[in-house]
């Protein structure tokens, strides 16, 4: 039975599904990572994903334009990120609780808007699969890596981009400093609030894109609570990835591939109780978090509001 898993179709299937499933996590986790590196823990990712998913879906359904769909998602994500920034940076509310508030708002609001706008579930024409010329011809690798829709490629391109921004630009330096020692950054003339507003708003936009990647690229449908907790896993993946883009990538791929693997295991009729198999990716994440000790890049000021003066 196990042998059934070791053929090309299955392995390609697992890898390819893993990459697809990883896509929303990448958007959301990279966005969340920027927020956390600057010291803001945003637990509202899930709500932002749902709002992004709905907005993109609604726009594409009514205009037929994917570009407008993406722009609308980015806009609503920026608004929600801005709201989170006002609450956590300016008003200095407890970040964990306000994030949960944002989540519940997104959950309820996306559902309400959906019900007001659609009498039933419909589909849209989403981002088509793009076969990258030449590269997609490579056996196995081509099928796994180069036959996806545009938003999948963008998600993976975000990883090196985020690394570059964080480590090679003045902006990245500011973000890292603000998350590690906001007092120091403040005395160096950096506006802690402005940096955090930027990262949290960016995080909102990317979380919103994560939702859009589901509703107008991978699934092309919207449904109430369709993200099913992915936003919270995305937050965990940031810890899993030690606040580094590369680490987040590994975490997202590992989580998604194990998820794809467990689906294939049951597709191939290997008799593992479904409940246990479904737990596997979550267990793995928890274990990784438990065994991961404090690391250098852990933002020391994470979830601490900043106020000038001692």
């Amino acid at each position: 039975m196990i042998g059934d898993l070791l053929n090309a179709t299955v392995l390609i299937g697992i890898a390819s599904s893993g990459i697809q499933l990883a896509t929303p996590y990448l958007y959301a986790s990279i966005g969340e990572m920027f927020g956390q590196r600057s010291g803001v823990l945003n637990l509202g990712v899930e709500g932002m994903m749902l709002m992004g998913a709905f907005t993109a879906f609604y726009t594409v359904h009514n205009t037929g334009s994917l570009v407008l769909g993406v722009l609308a998602a980015l806009m609503i994500g920026a608004l929600m990120g801005l709201a989170m920034a006002v609450i956590s940076v300016t008003l200095q509310a407890e970040q964990g609780i306000s994030g949960i508030g944002i989540y519940l708002f997104g959950l309820g609001m996306s559902d309400l808007l959906f019900q007001k706008s659609f009498s039933q579930i419909v589909t849209v024409r989403g981002f088509p699969t793009i076969r990258i010329p030449l590269l997609s011809e490579i056996p196995v690798i081509g099928e796994v890596f180069f036959e996806h829709n545009l938003l999948v490629y963008v998600a993976f391109a975000l990883v090196p981009l985020a690394w570059f921004v964080l480590n090679k630009t003045t902006l990245g330096l500011k973000i890292r400093a603000v998350g590690q020692n906001p007092q120091a950054a403040d005395t160096m003339g950096i506006s802690v609030a402005r940096v955090r507003y930027f990262t949290v708003t960016l995080g909102g936009m990317l979380a919103s894109m994560a939702g859009a990647s589901l509703s107008i690229a991978l699934l092309n449908v919207f449904q109430q609570n369709m993200t099913a907790g992915q936003g919270f896993i995305a937050v965990a993946l940031v810890y899993f990835g030690s606040w580094r883009p590369g680490g987040v990538l590994i975490g997202a791929l590992l989580f998604s591939t194990v998820n794809a693997l467990q689906l294939w295991v049951r597709t191939k009729g290997i008799d593992i109780p479904a409940e246990y198999a479904s737990m596997a990716p979550y267990l793995l994440t928890i274990l990784a978090l438990v065994f991961a000790s404090k690391r250098v890049d852990q933002p020391a000021a994470l979830s601490k509001p900043f106020e000038r003066g001692d």
Binding site: L173, R176, A177, Q180, N181, A184, A185, D297
Partner: peptide, 10 residues
């Protein structure tokens, strides 16, 4: 400053 304003990880 009395408490150094340095970012340790940088």
């Amino acid at each position: 400053h009395q408490h150094f304003m340095l970012v340790p990880s940088l």
